[in-house]
Amino acid sequence: MSTYTDTMRETARRLLKECRVDLVIGFRQGSQPMMNEPCLVRKPEDVDQLVWDSNCGINLANYLTNRKEKIGIFAKGCDSRNIVTHIIENKVQREQLVIVGVPCLGMIDKRKITAEAQGEILAVTEDGDQINVKTAAGTQSFAKADVLQQNCSVCTHRNPVIHDEMIAEPVAEQTDVDPYADVAAIEAMPLEERWAFFDDLLSPCIRCYACRNACPLCYCPTCFVDESKPQWVGKSQDAMDIRTFHFLRAYHCAGRCTDCGACERACPVGINMRLLTKKLNKDCKELYDWEAGLSPDKRPALDSYQANDPENFIK
C-alpha cells in the first residue's frame, strides 16, 4: 500500500494547482513510528509531506465536519462510508468534495506490534505483506495479516463506496469473514456472565473521551457528557457512570457506525468499545437490513418508517 504515496502526491498537487480544491486532507509521517497524523495541505509545494502506509487508521471524515471550503480528501473504504454519512446528515455538501478513493488492505494495530516487539521500536517499515520492525535489539518481521486491526481483519468494505477518482485499482473484498462473530459470542453468554464481561471490559476506562473525539460521528456542539442541566450521565469514574457513557455513546452511533475502529485506536487504555457499536450494527443489519454509509441516496434506517419495520418488542 505504501506505493500509493507517489500517486497521492501527484493527485494532490494537480487538484491544488488546478484550484479544484482549497485544501487536501491526507496523512503525513508522525513523530513516532506507527503514528501517522492527519494533515491538511493547502499549497501545491507542500504536497510532498503526504504519505500512505498501513498506519493511516485515523478516520479522515472527522475533519470534514462543517467545513465550507472545497476539499480534496483521501478515503479508504470506511472513510468513504463516513463521508456518505456526513453528506446524508448535511455536515458537508457533496459538491464541496473531491473524494480520492484509496483501496485498502487494512491498517496495522500498533498495540499488537508493541506487545510483540522486544524493546523500544525505532522504525517500522513495510514490504508488501510483511511488516519489519526495527528495535534496538535488531529487526523483527511480522506477517501483516497477523497484526491487522481487528476491525480491518473482518472488513467487508475495503473499497470506497463513493469516489471521484481512484488512486489504484480496487482490491478484492473479503467474503469469507463474519464481522459479527465476536458479538455473537457475547450474545451466547448467560446474563450474569455478560454483565461481568462488560464490567471487566469497561473497568480500565478513564473517561478521557478520546473515543468520542476520534469518532467522525460525534460532532454534536454540546456532547451529552458535557451537559450539566440536566446531567444525564455522572462525570465520575463510577462503574455505572462509565457504563452509561459507553452505552449512550454507542446509541448515538446506532445505524451510523461504519466500524472504522477510530475509537478503539484512540483509546489510551485499549478498550474494545467497538463491541457495543458493533452489536447495534448487527441489529441494524438483522432488523432493517441496513449498513451505514453505503449510498448517499438512501435514508438511514432509523429515520425512515416502513410498514414492515419489526415491532415485536412492543406489546
Binding site: 451529552f224 444525564w232 450521565v233 452509561t244
Partner: peptide, 10 residues
C-alpha cells in the same frame, strides 16, 4: 430517549 431510561434505572 435512552437517556431517560438509563437515568431512571440509575
Amino acid at each position: 430517549s435512552p437517556k431517560f431510561a438509563l437515568a431512571a434505572l440509575r
